[in-house]
Nucleic acid binder design. Structure first.
Lengths: 300, 300
DNA sequence: TCCCTTTTACTCAGTTTGAGTATATGTGGA
DNA sequence: TCCACATATACTCAAACTGAGTAAAAGGGA
């Protein structure tokens, strides 16, 4: 094999949900995701990441999964002769004060992606975005139809439904159309706050991944405290999905899965009728293999 | 950032389904997956991979997605001072004669994972594997219960259902128990054919990913010829999933989704009543955004 | 002609889902 | 003290979807 050397870097997208807002751990006053070099001493990529996240932020790190590996030539100001490979990870944590070396801070997802929060209906920002994207689509007659379809489907226009899992697709579309490149643009309220290099794209990747994952694996509980009410759980899921859910059906869904059990305690924090407190049944992971099917199996 | 240099390598898992058998493109007589260095000239990881797959195998490459990035210290015989980072990709192709430079060849998935093919019921190999894993579980009294649960769920023992998506989990379990390390073991019929370094684990990763993906995204069609019968389509899905499907329900599922349309032609290759030929409606991808929900949405 | 094989077309009960309504149980103010 | 108010919790019901199975159609070949 030819000698192909590259810089190797690890990037962490640490997410928590605090006060029903999804947040991401950042450095540089919210301008960048925490990252560090992958060194020879590290046993594995995961181990390397855990090590310096712990060092830089002191934040305990539970769930961790690999997200994606980036290495495009033009993704960042760079040494031309040598590439940087960035391996990103998604981590789920319960937010704590974390006085680490890198002056870490938490920022809401929707600072960076204002158009992604549909809990109170379609955000106002979407109208302007849709208009700008349409202008972009029309600007190239040869690709117009195809582009318009993409815009329609991504943004949920003309009868198409909003699909919260398309967060990355939407960001890439806006990027392609030149709506999100410039830092410090005047319309950040609409196009969201920029980040260093391609960190915002990485965050979009994480959002898409997590929004997909909460549907078929009980990862939300990594973000919940030891005991919680059903409403709290629902609001956490809603925060991640950026969608409002139907309360009775959410409850039914949860107890069908038998993922949680009552603690016996009650909480009366919310003003109305006191709510039962629940805890996650870790054992469930070992009992049911978390069925998956969706294929029309045949038994015999 | 500290200077952290590493070798960067790209590994391809190219899969096709031929004669109702899922196959993978290999080099070295089936002992390794095709791989090559990631070079400075490459525009991106994907581009780099496409380039030398084309060079080495001449095989046209349609669908391609990133699989996983590996860099464990002890994954391969290696220069101690310098790590190798391997970025793996999953590609789906229609198999063709491919006279490339690396003497490429196709081998069936189930040569490497005989226990994964359940189309004709539980493979005989599973009994011995279950026994060996149980012995391993019992061998450590302190972790016995936990290990036994893992074995049960992974292999579908004691009333647990077989879950085809756990292919990687099963391989890792067997690896941990020392059942699959040695090359050229006498019992390859049971524990499968080994591969170079961790290539077999990468293949297991690909299988798991693809088995999950066929359920919610119409990727099967990347493996199908221009026109095909419903049975052919079903057999292809069955080959990948390693499961037998219920014919009437499979058909219903397919035409609910409106993914295909009749060509008007018929095929009488199969001996019985001639079957209608269908083609994939590419347009569908642009029409429906391929809904995903599974969350109890609230409309208002 | 009739049997064999495979495709295609229905049926039907049981379960899951979307949507909405009704009842309980606290708090705080009149 | 009692009544609004805000939640929490509990049902209901029709429509859609699934699992499982049966029946009819249409070729080829003995």
């Amino acid at each position: 094999m030819k000698d192909a050397l590259a810089h190797a870097e690890l990037i962490a997208v640490l997410t928590a949900v605090t006060n029903d807002e999804p947040r991401v751990m950042t450095v540089s006053k919210g301008e960048a995701l925490p990252s560090g070099p992958f060194e020879v001493e590290h046993r594995s990529l995961q181990a390397g990441l855990r090590e310096w996240v712990n060092e830089q932020t002191g934040h305990p790190l539970g769930y961790l999964e690999q997200l994606y590996t980036f290495a495009d030539r033009d993704r960042a100001p760079n040494n031309k002769a040598r590439r940087t490979i960035s391996i990103s990870y998604l981590g789920l944590v319960r937010e704590q004060a974390a006085p680490g070396a890198g002056a870490p801070g938490w920022h809401g997802w929707y600072e960076y992606f204002p158009w992604e929060d549909h809990r109170d209906g379609r955000p106002a920002a979407l109208a302007a975005i849709a208009e700008a994207l349409n202008a972009w689509a029309v600007s190239d007659p040869s690709r117009r139809d195809h582009r318009q379809k993409r815009v329609e489907l991504s943004l949920g226009l003309n009868g198409a439904a909003w699909n919260e899992e398309l967060a990355l697709q939407r960001y890439e579309l806006m990027f392609e159309a030149g709506l999100v490149t410039e830092a410090g643009a005047p319309d950040e309220a609409e196009t969201g706050r920029p980040m260093f290099a391609d960190h915002r794209r990485i965050l979009a990747t994480a959002i898409t991944r997590l929004r997909a994952k909460i549907k078929y694996r009980p990862v939300v509980f990594e973000l919940m405290p030891e005991s919680f009410t059903l409403s709290h759980l629902q609001h956490t899921v809603e925060a991640l999905a950026g969608l409002a859910l139907h309360k009775p059906n959410f409850r039914r869904l949860i107890d069908q899965q038998e993922l949680i059990e009552e603690t016996g305690e009650m909480s009366s924090e919310t003003g109305g009728r006191p709510a039962k407190l629940y805890r996650y049944r870790r054992a469930i992971l070992e009992e049911h293999a978390l069925s998956s099917t969706r294929l029309p199996l045949s038994r015999n």
